[in-house]
Amino acid sequence: MSVVEDIRAIRGSLERIEHALCGQRTTRFDAVEVPAVECVPSLRLVEGVVADVDSPIDLVPVEPVEPSRFGLYTDDGGDRWQKCPQGWTFTGYADGSPPIAAGHVPIDFSDIQHWGPFAYAGGERNELGSAAAPYRLEQVVTILHSEGINTGLRRLKQYLNTGVCWTDGFNNPREGAADYLVVVKKSSPGRDAVVRVTVAGVAKLVELMGAKK
């Protein structure tokens, strides 16, 4: 047997072994038919407007809504306001200092809405409980407003002094007002005392001043 025949014999043996191990060999590839893909229609958010996923979304500003409850509020910077039936009044700064000018006329919410949002800080009559802390005179004014009693800080101080005689000329509580007023700072030369009104005191003022409406 020649060398060529030996090589052919060996090649035939290898092909038979390969066929046994791997099955029939593929010697050609048939063409594969790829199905056509239909065009996906554009997403429409609004009738007649084609959405573009890469385009920016226009944000519509939300108009601030005026709080419905009467009472005390703080604005976005921490400054204090009060809402009464007549409107909004600035009552003090975030650091505790009072307004520069006293006796402000209540203004409309549209004039102060850019300082919002406004957070409710209490003060409505129906939120007073027997264990509530004494209230500042500014808070008492707001509570009286929520009861429909038209008054202000100066008028309330005058009423406490000469109306119901709960305070003396230096804003110190008189003996008969022990259940209605609490001293926070005692009076000193050139400075009146600072008082708070108890829950019983607020209820009594609503009773007395409401009867005068």
Rank of each mutant, 00 (worst) to 15 (best):
T151M: 02
P35A: 10
V183Y: 04
D58N: 08
K83A: 08
N150V: 12
Q24Y: 06
K204F: 08
T198R: 11
D168S: 04
S187G: 04
D111M: 13
A94S: 15
V37G: 11
A36V: 15
T162G: 00
L72K: 04
G96N: 05
Q158R: 05
Y180L: 12
W166R: 06
Q82W: 02
G201H: 14
E207K: 14
I57C: 10
L72F: 04
D54M: 06
S130Y: 12
T26N: 15
V62P: 08
L137G: 06
A177Y: 10
L72H: 01
E15T: 11
V183E: 00
R125T: 09
A9W: 08
L128F: 13
R16C: 07
D58H: 10
R196P: 01
T89F: 08
N171H: 12
Y93L: 12
G23D: 01
T198L: 13
L45A: 10
D6S: 15
Q86Y: 10
P189D: 03
L14D: 07
D52A: 05
V197C: 13
I57N: 02
V183K: 01
S13C: 05
S68W: 12
T89D: 10
S146G: 03
E207R: 15
S110Q: 15
P189A: 02
Y73S: 00
H114Y: 13
G123Q: 00
V4Y: 09
I57D: 06
Y93T: 08
V62T: 15
Y180W: 15
V202H: 09
E66A: 14
R155W: 02
T74P: 00
F109D: 01
A94N: 10
V140A: 02
R69G: 03
A102C: 01
D108H: 07
L14I: 06
F109N: 01
P64K: 03
W166Y: 03
E15H: 07
G92P: 12
C165F: 07
N150Q: 12
G103W: 02
Q158Y: 07
W88A: 05
